[in-house]
Design a protein around this nucleic acid. Sequence first.
DNA 1: TCTCCGGTGGGCAGAGTGCGCACCGTGTCG
DNA 2: CGACACGGTGCGCACTCTGCCCACCGGAGA
Lengths: 174, 174
Amino acid sequence: MRTLPTGEAPTESELRTVHTLDATDARILLALDEDPAASTMALATRLGLARNTVHARLRRLESDGALQQHSHRVDPHSLGRTLLAFMTLSLSQSQGSEGAAAALAAIPEVVEVLATTGDADLLARVVAVDTADLYRITELVLTAPGVERASTSIALVEVVPMRLAPLLAQRAAG
Amino acid sequence: MRTLPTGEAPTESELRTVHTLDATDARILLALDEDPAASTMALATRLGLARNTVHARLRRLESDGALQQHSHRVDPHSLGRTLLAFMTLSLSQSQGSEGAAAALAAIPEVVEVLATTGDADLLARVVAVDTADLYRITELVLTAPGVERASTSIALVEVVPMRLAPLLAQRAAG
DNA sequence: TCTCCGGTGGGCAGAGTGCGCACCGTGTCG
DNA sequence: CGACACGGTGCGCACTCTGCCCACCGGAGA
């Protein structure tokens, strides 16, 4: 799966062979996951590696894209958006999804949209201040070109918060 | 919405009055969103503020929880998980969701689970190596206690990648 | 008017970074 | 077998940035 193609050919960096992570890479990323503020030196001493080794690997991981430069650190709650909801959207089959994509991208409260298989065509993650706000956003979403139906479910509890540590741990052990 | 309660009373920090962000806070977070590697000094010069000002605000934002300390920087693709899917899970009404939650949390490929309103009870975000792997995970999910039905849709394209910048921009301007 | 508070400017010690270098063990290949 | 590349290691150095002082200032509110 990749981001929405915008017309251009894939860049050289996108085509770059993805260096698979070895156990050491995974250990570094895992330690970083536990303590994201850790310095290179702290990681090195903690993992029993030389600072230069950790440094070199971090640089490679970043250039490979395994370690994203951008991070989602801002809590929507602090912006007053305490409500999280998912909308499954059905598009009219005749037209493409570009128009809908652009319209959805123009709504700030729509924080993520994925095209999916199945009954619905799009899955949108939406944040809102309260239910009235969510209603307003729903109306807005329904004005997007091609959007025929929206089915909304509200997130009640975060049963398993977003995480990658278990996968990293698996790789670190293997 | 909050994380799954584990029995204890909310901690003092969770009850702390959430300081609402002012426009300057939003500008700082927005600049940080665009360049997460930016140093305090770089932010200060870029925003036309004193270093001490930015420093003090960053400290407050972090202590308020608005700026999360942990960040999701690792790309699942680098772990070979190029497939992203969503599973809507129906639970048997009789039993609670604790058992299911624990079982799902034990599956590394399950990267996020939310309890939702609507037809389904849970929404799980899952990564997999390929469709065969996804099938294996589906079987695994179905063994979780209380899970009666799983409906899977595969993410095809990232129409709008996870983002908060538009909301921050709105706040920065307002 | 006085006081509080947030922003500002300057300064300073210490930590961490980025980078260079040399060395060494391992594995590969001609 | 010898040459070589490669990744990890240890050392050092210049530089930046941090974290934390302090004093000053201007506006808001009592």
